[in-house]
Design a protein around this nucleic acid. Structure first.
Lengths: 206, 206
DNA sequence: AAAAAATTAAAACGTACGTTTGAATGTAGT
DNA sequence: ACTACATTCAAACGTACGTTTTAATTTTTT
């Protein structure tokens, strides 16, 4: 080993995350990944087996901390004495994403753009991401259903879906001139979360 | 000519629209387009010059009727004696899209998915679509600014962007089990528009 | 009907893709 | 030091891509 800042495997995942985010699955070549990662082409298949499995690895590394944080916040809300407000639930959903997805990114909001890709890529890519977030999706829908019993499950489902889509758009546009999310400083994240909750909260109640 | 239902050029655009929508720009091969369109491979470069120009042609055919309809509805609103409500503006924005994008599609909601692609493809694809809708975007922002003067232009811009993103998501998911938009019948479109306006209207006012 | 222009057709161009191979190198464990 | 294993490397594999070329064919014009 010459002196990679981190291991080959992590290096590949990091570069792949950015390129997949910018150019999509089909638009990203393994050769461009290994060039930027400064590793050998064959290393991808040695460590991951295929391009598709590399994509799955990127999803997993990204999703795990978000899912855990969201489930934790949701559990806290449910443990409280009073049923949580719509706004509190939305905050528990949006905050971890905004935090995790904008953290530790040397350049820009790569992880956010990557998340967006996951929802627009053709199968079987899309299902990979859905599966990774299925647990937290169900949990949130259950809580929402409890405090909004007058709305049908169907309504809650498409509204939740639109909330996620909004979040992803916000993240994908983060840092751009007229974006909600200006930067990745804690105050930026708090401000953006607050604005988004105000934007989405009323519609959630129908 | 053996017996193409319509001209070669239109045939190519129609198939390309669907495949671009399903697989994205990079994920769609010209060979798959000409196979399904039952035309010769060279016809693409004869009629369009390149893959990129083919994509532009798809955008143009799709955007023109929507832009015209939206500008017309907006002009009607402004011509009225009273300043229009947020809800009326949202309806003028959403209705034409829902109508045009779900009309005449033999199979499913292809045009809608295609619109979504335009916003997530890498440059220069994304700018192509932006340019095509720039006029109507500016017009809507101006009207919104007039009736919501207490909000900054910046706020209105990102909110408008989120509305468009929501619309695209609704269209992309149209027809699926838990979608807002159930089908392409007039009553389905009216119902979906109404639900969306209720969902987005309050947030628009902040 | 002949000439001109527009369109379609088949084949090949060079390039780049994901993947595989087999040898070279590094890293433990004994 | 030797063995066993894990990792890296350069090179090549077959395939498919966007594009070009040249000729055949159809359509339009005169």
């Amino acid at each position: 080993m010459v002196s990679p800042v981190t291991g080959t495997k992590e290096q590949i995942i990091s570069v792949a995350e950015r390129l997949f985010a910018e150019r999509g699955f089909a638009g990203t070549t393994l050769r461009s990944v290994v060039n930027e990662a400064e590793v050998n082409l064959a290393a991808v298949h040695y460590h991951f087996g295929s391009k598709e499995e590399l994509f799955r690895s990127v999803i997993e590394r990204l999703a795990r901390p978000i899912v855990e944080k969201e489930l934790e916040l949701l559990a806290q809300l449910q443990a409280g004495p009073h049923p949580p407000s719509v706004e509190a639930i939305l905050t528990a959903l949006l905050q971890p994403c905004l935090e995790v997805l904008t953290r530790d990114s040397d350049s820009q909001f790569i992880r956010a753009q990557f998340m967006g890709r996951c929802r627009t890529e053709p199968e079987p890519i899309q299902s990979m991401a859905d599966r990774e977030f299925a647990e937290v999706t169900d949990a949130f829908l259950d809580v929402l259903q409890r405090i909004l019993p007058e709305q049908s499950r169907l309504q809650l489902q498409w509204k939740f879906d639109l909330v996620i889509m909004t979040l992803i758009r916000v993240l994908a546009e983060a840092g751009k001139p007229h974006a909600v999310l200006k930067g990745n400083k804690p105050e930026d994240i708090r401000a953006a979360t607050e604005q988004l909750v105000k934007f989405l909260g009323p519609g959630m109640r129908s």
